[in-house]
């Protein structure tokens, strides 16, 4: 808890007084169950790529930030009803989401989607593919006409492959890489699919000023190369050119 309030920026510097009043603390909403993007560490705190990125962005934008976790299923409804101010949870920018909320510019390029299976020779069309319920991956498998089996959590999708319920898991490459590390029985296949856009921070559509601040902060991290450093440190995606 003591680390939650990280930056005590001088609020007097913020341009508009109304803004300062409404955002004296910016609440950062994340899921806390998607390593290496965001997860709960041994001390029970939010940790991961997005924790480090978010703290740095807040420092650059001179904002006081606080971390909040929320279930993935209701992460957007809770943002629009004002329970926190941003979503920073590995959320891909998609046109559907963009209709409901606003996104900053992307802070990682699109993460390719990959397969993890027990054997190298997988033919997706004739296999059972596991995915998390309601993800864009699940939608893609359905689109392709492959046999889809959906599980409530990503953990269960991997367990299903090991138990022989499914032939492969279809999920973000960075998640799979972390999940199968140190486990010899599962293999990541070469084949990848580009799904969705890059990952950005989600904000309420009415919160233009806050979005501009984060946009500028992300731009400055892109410009001085510190964003690429973070990305390669956590191995979450490919680097920006």
């Amino acid at each position: 808890m003591k680390n939650l309030i990280l930056t005590t920026a001088a609020l007097a510097l913020t341009s508009s007084m109304a803004f300062a009043e409404s955002h004296s603390v910016v609440r950062m909403g994340t899921e806390g169950a998607y390593a290496p993007w965001n997860f709960i560490n041994d001390a029970g705190e939010v940790d991961g790529f997005e924790r480090e990125l978010g703290d740095e962005l807040c420092a650059r934008a001179e904002l006081t930030c606080e971390w909040v976790t929320n279930d993935w299923d209701s992460i957007i409804p809770n943002l629009v009803s004002g329970n926190y101010d941003t979503i920073i949870a590995g959320m891909s920018i998609t046109p559907e989401r963009d209709e409901i909320i606003d996104f900053t510019q992307e802070y990682t390029p699109a993460d390719p989607t990959a397969f993890v299976a027990m054997t190298e020779d997988l033919d997706p069309a004739n296999s059972v593919i596991a995915a998390q319920t309601g993800t864009i991956q699940a939608g893609y498998i359905a689109d392709q006409g492959w046999t889809l089996v959906e599980f409530a959590t990503p953990e269960e999708t991997i367990a299903a492959v090991r138990a022989g319920e499914a032939d492969a898991v279809f999920a973000d490459q960075s998640y799979l890489a972390g999940a199968i590390e140190g486990q010899d029985d599962l293999i990541m296949l070469e084949q990848t699919v580009a799904l969705g856009g890059g990952v950005g921070m989600g904000l309420r559509e009415s919160d233009t000023e806050l979005r501009e601040k984060f946009d500028a902060a992300i731009q400055s991290m892109k410009d001085d190369g510190s964003l690429n450093e973070l990305i390669s440190k956590w191995e979450v995606a490919s680097l920006f050119e």
Partner: peptide, 19 residues
């Protein structure tokens, strides 16, 4: 698990809530 997006009423309700 739900196979081929065949689920019960709550499965479809949360599908729509999600989309």
């Amino acid at each position: 698990p739900a196979w081929q997006q065949k689920g019960d009423a709550l499965y479809y309700a949360s599908y729509f809530a999600d989309k």
